[in-house]
Amino acid sequence: MKLKKLYPELVSGIIDQGFDKEPKEIQTDCIPKIKSGADLLVIAPEGSGKTTTIVIGVIQQLKEAFEEAPRAIVLVGNKEKAFELEEQFELLGKHTNLRTFTVFDQGNLQYQKDTIYEGLDILIGTPKRINELLSNTGIPCTKLKLLVVDDAETIFPNRHHPVVYRISDGSIKIQCLLFANKWHEKFDDLTKRIEKNWVLINTDC
């Protein structure tokens, strides 16, 4: 991952957080491919830097605020992980004007829907709540560019995968990035169900 090839405001955030010293293997492997628009299925152990890779990749692709509808949806396994991810976006994206918002199962659905329609770029949330918002016309998807799934090895076995298919089916141009701690047999179904030129990155070998 060469910083000089990244969005300058993102580079400032990376330097501020000290992530410019020695990029982790997953960042070196993934960021150039994300930047190129590739669809990734990434298998890497916990603590390998997946969260930071997601944040850098999404900020690099979106760069700055644009109109009102979200351009990235990031699915995570639970509320705690969602807010952890939001904090990372705020830290690494503090020199940008990108807008993030987090939704979760126990939150007020109408409040979350209203906030989304006020305008944002990155929507982070749990699969159940994202699905509920989609069913209640709470997420305009006309500008969606990125679908990111973290904790994919828990989301797919727990029968939350239909929302992944629902979002991906909504746009043939959407870039899909899936990250998991370990391989799960349902990923075979995923790669068949979502017909893309998937690039597999496995650092857990």
Rank of each mutant, 00 (worst) to 15 (best):
W183Y: 11
K182L: 04
N181I: 03
W198L: 13
L147G: 04
E153V: 02
H160Q: 12
A82W: 15
T154I: 07
G125T: 13
N136R: 13
E185K: 11
R129Q: 01
N158V: 01
L123H: 14
I130L: 01
V199W: 03
N108S: 14
N181Y: 02
R99H: 11
T137D: 13
G125P: 10
N202F: 15
I167D: 03
A180D: 00
K196I: 11
L190Y: 09
I116K: 03
K182G: 05
F101Y: 14
L147Q: 02
F187A: 06
P157T: 01
N136S: 14
E90D: 14
V148A: 00
R166I: 12
I174M: 11
N197I: 06
F89E: 00
E195P: 01
L178A: 13
V164F: 08
N202A: 06
V149I: 15
L134A: 08
I167C: 07
Q110V: 13
D114G: 06
Q88N: 07
G107T: 13
V199F: 04
F104D: 02
V164P: 05
Q112S: 06
H161R: 11
A152N: 15
H184S: 02
C205K: 15
I130K: 00
R99E: 10
L109V: 10
K173H: 09
T142N: 12
N97G: 04
L144I: 09
D204T: 14
V164I: 11
Y111D: 01
Q88E: 12
I194S: 13
G170C: 03
N97F: 05
R129P: 01
G119K: 03
S171Q: 09
L123V: 11
W198M: 15
L85T: 15
N136W: 01
A180Y: 07
E153R: 07
K192Q: 10
D105G: 07
L144R: 15
F101L: 07
W198I: 10
L109G: 00
